[in-house]
Amino acid sequence: MKAQIAFVCIAFLFASVFVNCEDDKDNKKDDKSEEIKVYKRLIPADVLRDFPGMCFASTRCATVEPGKTWDLTPFCGRSTCVLDESNPAKLLELVEDCGPLPLANDKCKLDTEKTNKTAPFPYCCPTFKCEPGVKLEYPEIKEEPKKE
């Protein structure tokens, strides 16, 4: 009996340490995610004729149910299969990625120490280091007019 209680206490101790470590990791992620801009856009979803009602995830070569998300590896991003609110028979793909690259600037360089192309999204987004007082400029993204 004492051995069982000791085992439960040790297991609880390890679980507590593990949970605390996970909480610290999550807090660190939240701090970094505030620095990362995530660009979102809705596009018409690819749909295979043999799988109506499901999005086709070309990066995975798989079908995905509405409401489900998949990563866009080898690209840095993720997508979600979404039902169109105005036409529930139509599927959309909510694409989330790093957005456009900044305009060329000799005073800003890709920060190779902080950029990790193989990290999960959004931590795979490129990070840039600029000389003091220099800000990156990004191309203007124009929204396409909605077709009715």
Rank of each mutant, 00 (worst) to 15 (best):
K2N: 12
K2Q: 11
A3F: 14
A6T: 12
C9S: 06
I10A: 13
F14A: 04
S16D: 14
V19A: 07
D23L: 08
D24R: 15
K25C: 10
D26M: 13
D30F: 12
S33H: 00
S33W: 01
S33D: 04
V38S: 07
R41T: 05
I43Y: 02
P44K: 10
R49E: 14
D50I: 15
G53A: 10
M54T: 10
C55D: 01
F56L: 06
A57W: 03
S58Q: 06
S58K: 08
R60L: 00
R60M: 01
R60G: 04
C61L: 04
V64E: 00
G67H: 01
W70N: 01
L72E: 08
T73S: 11
C76V: 04
G77F: 06
S79C: 00
S79T: 07
N87K: 03
N87H: 01
P88K: 09
P88E: 11
P88A: 08
E93N: 08
V95N: 02
P102W: 12
L103R: 15
L103A: 11
L103H: 11
A104H: 07
N105D: 15
N105M: 08
L110I: 14
D111E: 02
T112P: 01
E113M: 13
K114F: 07
T115L: 09
P120H: 02
Y123L: 08
P126N: 09
C130G: 02
V134Q: 04
V134R: 03
K135D: 13
E140D: 10
